[in-house]
Computed example of a mutant assay.
Amino acid sequence: MPSLVLQTNVKVPDVGAWANEFSKLSAEFLGKPELYISVSYNYDENLSFGGTFEPAFLLTITSLDNINPEVNEKYSKIIFDHFQKTLGTPGNRGYVVFNDPGRDFMGHKGTTVAAIFGN
Rank of each mutant, 00 (worst) to 15 (best):
M1L: 12
M1P: 09
M1N: 11
M1S: 11
S3H: 13
L4M: 11
L4Q: 03
L6A: 12
L6Y: 05
N9V: 12
K11D: 13
K11R: 15
V12P: 03
V12Y: 08
V15F: 07
V15P: 02
G16A: 15
G16C: 13
A17V: 14
W18N: 09
W18L: 10
W18P: 09
E21L: 07
E21N: 09
L25Y: 06
E28P: 07
G31T: 07
E34M: 07
L35F: 05
L35W: 06
S38E: 13
S38C: 15
S38L: 15
S38T: 13
V39Y: 04
S40Y: 09
S40G: 08
S40R: 12
Y41R: 07
N42S: 02
Y43W: 02
D44K: 06
D44I: 02
S48Y: 05
S48I: 05
G50Y: 08
F53R: 09
E54R: 13
E54Y: 14
A56Q: 00
L59H: 07
I61C: 03
I61V: 04
T62Y: 09
S63P: 02
L64R: 05
N66E: 09
N66L: 04
I67A: 01
P69D: 14
E70I: 12
V71N: 09
E73I: 02
E73G: 03
K74R: 09
K74M: 07
Y75H: 10
S76L: 00
K77Q: 08
K77S: 02
I78A: 12
F80D: 00
F80N: 01
D81N: 08
D81Q: 04
D81S: 06
F83Q: 00
F83D: 02
Q84A: 13
K85E: 14
K85L: 10
G88F: 07
G88I: 10
G88W: 04
P90V: 14
G91L: 11
G91P: 11
G91V: 12
N92L: 06
G94S: 01
G94F: 00
G94N: 01
F98A: 07
F98Y: 13
N99W: 10
D100C: 08
D100E: 09
R103C: 05
R103K: 08
M106L: 15
G107F: 09
G107S: 11
G107C: 12
T112L: 14
V113I: 07
